[in-house]
């Protein structure tokens, strides 16, 4: 006696099954890295010194004066947005029942993700800690006492 299990007993295609597997692995690999990156980010910005009270343009200028935090923040930006977006895609797949709703939500998620990664990357790479015509007291101290 044999039982035939109806579709979907197998993935729609080998390619999409592979992609799902990489997505699953990505959630775990990026999660482990994000733990370090985000805890470091929170300690540096919210815990040490005066915490949230110290954050202003000068604070960001000071952090982004050297490549260290720029690279840190850049990696965190990419990993977190892709992790969060792929996680939200899982929720959409779970809760959106109509195919066209599901499809549009997933496309919207990745579009938003792409725009924010592009914006954030441009901000980090083109940041100017001493913009011309700004009040000196708003800038990091190294802008004035060269």
């Amino acid at each position: 006696m044999s039982i035939t299990i109806e579709t979907p007993r197998s993935p729609r295609s080998r390619k999409s099954a592979k992609l799902e597997k990489y997505g699953w692995l990505y959630m775990r690999a990026s999660g482990a890295l994000l733990l370090v990156l985000i805890f470091g980010h929170l300690i540096a910005n919210l815990f040490v010194g005066e915490g949230i009270r110290a954050i202003d343009f000068g604070f960001v200028g000071g952090k982004w004066a050297t490549p260290f935090w720029r690279i840190w923040d850049g990696i965190m930006l990419w990993l977190a947005l892709i992790h969060g977006t792929n996680g939200m895609r899982t929720l959409v797949n779970d809760y959106a029942e109509r195919p066209w709703v599901r499809k549009s939500l997933v496309v919207t998620l990745w579009a938003v993700c792409g725009v924010l990664i592009l914006l954030g990357t441009l901000v980090i790479t083109t940041f100017d800690p001493c913009p011309a015509n700004s009040l000196p007291e708003l800038l990091p101290s190294f802008c004035t006492n060269k």
């Binding site: 202003d56 343009f57 000068g58 960001v60 200028g61 930006l77 977190a80 947005l81 969060g84 977006t85 996680g87 939200m88 938003v112 924010l116 914006l119 954030g120 441009l122 901000v123 083109t126 940041f127 913009p131 700004s134 009040l135 708003l138 800038l139």
Partner: peptide, 21 residues
Amino acid sequence: FFFLLVHVLDTALVRVSPEAY
């Protein structure tokens, strides 16, 4: 996730002006 969307946008204001940020 939703906080991160807002947070990337507010941080992007460093590229607008110190006052805006």
